[in-house]
Every structure is written in structure tokens, then in C-alpha cells.
Amino acid sequence: MAKTVFYSFHYKRDVHRVQLVKNINALEGQPVLSSQAWEQVERGGSKAIQQWIDEQMKYKRAVVVLIGRETASRPWVKYEVQKAWQDKKPLLGVRIHGLSSMGSVDSIGGNPFTSAGLAGVPIFDPTKVDWQNRIDSQATYRALLGHIEAWSSKGATRP
């Protein structure tokens, strides 16, 4: 079972949702940097970002892509997916658009694995809706809480 994971996500749009995932404490992931700390890494340019990602991913047992509305189009998410595949780390996705960020949920995002040319990588979706077919963020959180640890052991690995 993958207990230590690298979380791949779109920082600016989804950091609050990612904090909810981390607060479940079912998995140990890399630290989610404050916006100031992330900006400091970014100021170092592409090489610094790549080095930070490589170092954080190095000893993780799996890579979990936390998929929000814009995740699939993010260049660093694409890099992280390709690196995980190249390094033969188990890779999976978990949809987080149904979690609340500052009181609102988001719409579903694209598949970051097909945009990276990978097929067969599982994506798990804890999103729950209420009787009016609106996303219920609290029920979604409870579903994620009950499943994320088991899902983390079901990633696809490059042969």
C-alpha cells in the first residue's frame, strides 16, 4: 500500500482543496508550500521547479494527481505525470472538484493522463450529489476520507 505519496495538482486553483485532502492524514505527502514559499521556488525558474519536484518525488511510493478543473492543462502536472511514469512509480488520479474551496465547488476537469498519452491509469471520483443533483462537498469529503488510502494502492505502473 502506498502510504507516502507525491501529490500533483494545480497550485493556484486547487491548493485549498489539496489542504483538505492532506488533512485527512491517510497518506503522507510532500509539504504543501505556502504561496510565498512556492513563489520563491518559482523565482528560481524552470530548473529550480524541476529540481524541487524531482527531490520531493524521489522517495515517494506513488504519485497521486489531484484533479481539479484545470489540472490536465498545467505544464508542471504534465511533467510530474511523465516523470512518475518514467520512474515506474504507481500513478493514479483522484478528482477533487467536488471539495469546497473557500465555500464553492468547481466543475469537473479533463483527464491528465490521456493528455499525457497514457492509457489505463485509474481515476477515482468521490464526488457526491444531493437530491437536486448539486455537488455535496461534505458528502464528497466523507467519501474521499473513506477511500483514499485504499485507492492509493491501485495506481498503474509503466511495464
Rank of each mutant, 00 (worst) to 15 (best):
M1D: 09
A2N: 14
T4S: 15
V5N: 06
F9K: 05
Y11N: 06
R13Q: 11
R17N: 06
V18S: 06
Q19E: 12
Q19T: 08
L20C: 00
L20D: 00
L20F: 00
V21F: 04
K22H: 12
N23A: 14
N23H: 05
N23W: 00
I24N: 07
A26I: 02
A26S: 08
G29D: 02
Q30I: 02
L33F: 10
S35A: 12
S35N: 10
S35P: 10
Q36I: 07
E39M: 06
V41H: 09
E42P: 02
R43D: 07
K47W: 13
A48V: 12
A48F: 11
Q51K: 14
D54E: 15
D54T: 03
E55T: 15
Q56L: 07
M57I: 05
K58V: 03
Y59F: 12
Y59I: 04
R61M: 12
A62Y: 11
V63N: 10
L66M: 02
L66G: 04
G68S: 13
R69Y: 11
R69F: 15
E70G: 04
T71M: 05
P75S: 15
W76E: 01
Q82R: 14
K83Q: 13
K83R: 14
A84S: 12
W85M: 03
D87R: 04
L91F: 10
L92I: 03
G93A: 02
G93W: 01
I96N: 00
G98P: 10
L99R: 03
G103V: 05
G103F: 01
S104L: 01
I108A: 14
I108E: 15
G109R: 04
G110V: 00
N111S: 08
P112C: 05
F113Y: 03
S115R: 07
A116E: 08
A116H: 03
G117I: 10
A119G: 10
V121T: 09
P122H: 01
I123C: 06
D125P: 13
D125Y: 01
P126D: 10
P126W: 00
P126K: 01
K128M: 15
V129G: 00
V129S: 08
D130Y: 09
Q132M: 13
Q132I: 00
N133C: 09
I135C: 05
I135K: 07
D136M: 09
A139Y: 04
Y141F: 15
R142F: 00
A143K: 11
L145H: 08
G146F: 04
G146C: 02
G146I: 00
A150D: 14
W151C: 06
S152K: 11
G155W: 05
A156K: 12
A156I: 04
T157H: 01
T157F: 09
T157K: 09
